Computed example of a mutant assay.
Amino acid sequence: MPDDLQDRLGPDLKSFESIQASRAFHKESAGEIMQRRHVALAPDRTAAEAVAALQRASDMIGSVDTVFVIDADNRPIGAFKPRALLLVPPDTPLSKIMSREFPVVSSATDQEEAALATAGTEFKSLPVVDNDGRLVGQITTKMLARVVAEEAAEDMLKLGGVNEDARPTDSVPKIVRNRLPWLLAGLVGATIAAIIIGSFEEELEKAAILAAFIPVVMSMAGNAGLQASVVSVQALAMGSNWPGDRLIYRFGRELLGALVNGAIAGSILASLILAGSLIFDVEDPVRLALATSMSLLTVTTIAAIVGSFVPLGLSRLGIDPAAATGVFITTSNDVVGVLVYFLMASTFYF
């Protein structure tokens, strides 16, 4: 909600105090999306006292997913799920129930990082602390799910070369402003690819049929690169960073997968060319089949490797991989695909 509208409507809003408090934090931070209402108890309180506290808080908070345990300075030292209270005697202290392994985020933490913090843990509600480590609120399960959905939608738009703020109701000037820069970046790559094609004009004059397979090679390169990059961006969004030997293992797996896919696609194309030569007049179909199949094998492999590791490299440079990957993959695959195709044609066809 715009700040001026909040100021006008604020006094009439039931949650005005929460809105005012959230405005003190950075946009899309844990502090902005957190809920200040939560259940926090001392470690010496008993299970029976915890049940009573949950009953008192139920009207104010609603369903409680996680109960936090705090020390004398209001710093979280443990957490447990309410169902744990049903499995112990009423006089059991919370220090015996709580788990000391639980995620905690600062109010300044980006909301996407906060959502990732709960991955692999039993706790889905996330405690938020201030600069001194004191508990100031929680991010609920519902809010975390909303953040994940919003971030996924943003990444999808970025991969498509569209600004993350784009909406179906955008005006014409905003559509142009959001989309034209990415289109122009793609135009640069397409222009370079056209220049490469032009440099092989003599080869095209000798065998015009080569031009018929340029779209096939470029399309395969684009699809292979896009598939690999989407998987990488998704994995990075889920918190994977492939350190050390895991990176080497992934490289080997992607390389092998790309080689297999490229070999299968190349074999199918070669078979189609040979079969077509029985019907149509094709000059030296065996050499043409070899050139095109080797092109597909090579460009599919290169595109898959580039698509897999460009997002990782961008991420480590501090660049949003979803924002830059789409146009980078498309442009590089166009250029590399055309260049590889004509090099293979020069080697195997002429």
Score class of each variant (00 low, 15 high):
residue 14 K to E: 15
residue 16 F to W: 14
residue 18 S to V: 00
residue 20 Q to L: 03
residue 20 Q to P: 00
residue 23 R to G: 03
residue 24 A to L: 05
residue 26 H to M: 12
residue 29 S to T: 06
residue 30 A to Q: 06
residue 36 R to T: 11
residue 37 R to G: 14
residue 39 V to P: 04
residue 42 A to E: 13
residue 47 A to E: 07
residue 55 Q to N: 14
residue 61 I to S: 04
residue 65 D to H: 14
residue 69 V to A: 06
residue 73 D to K: 15
residue 77 I to Y: 06
residue 81 K to D: 06
residue 82 P to G: 08
residue 83 R to D: 11
residue 83 R to F: 14
residue 93 P to V: 07
residue 101 E to Y: 10
residue 103 P to W: 07
residue 104 V to M: 04
residue 109 T to W: 04
residue 117 A to P: 02
residue 117 A to F: 06
residue 125 S to C: 06
residue 125 S to F: 03
residue 127 P to A: 08
residue 129 V to K: 06
residue 129 V to G: 06
residue 130 D to E: 10
residue 132 D to M: 09
residue 135 L to G: 04
residue 136 V to Y: 03
residue 154 E to A: 12
residue 154 E to R: 15
residue 155 D to E: 14
residue 159 L to Q: 01
residue 166 A to L: 02
residue 170 D to Y: 08
residue 176 V to P: 01
residue 176 V to M: 09
residue 186 G to C: 11
residue 191 T to D: 01
residue 193 A to R: 00
residue 193 A to P: 01
residue 203 E to F: 00
residue 207 A to W: 06
residue 209 I to Q: 03
residue 212 A to L: 15
residue 217 V to F: 07
residue 227 Q to E: 15
residue 229 S to Y: 11
residue 234 Q to E: 12
residue 237 A to S: 15
residue 242 W to K: 02
residue 244 G to H: 07
residue 245 D to E: 08
residue 253 R to T: 15
residue 256 L to Q: 04
residue 259 L to G: 02
residue 259 L to S: 01
residue 265 A to G: 11
residue 267 S to E: 00
residue 271 S to I: 13
residue 282 V to R: 12
residue 284 D to A: 14
residue 287 R to K: 14
residue 292 T to S: 10
residue 294 M to F: 14
residue 297 L to Y: 04
residue 317 L to S: 10
residue 318 G to H: 11
residue 320 D to M: 12
residue 323 A to R: 14
residue 326 G to H: 12
residue 329 I to S: 01
residue 338 V to K: 00
residue 339 L to V: 03
residue 343 L to C: 07
residue 346 S to F: 01
residue 349 Y to I: 01
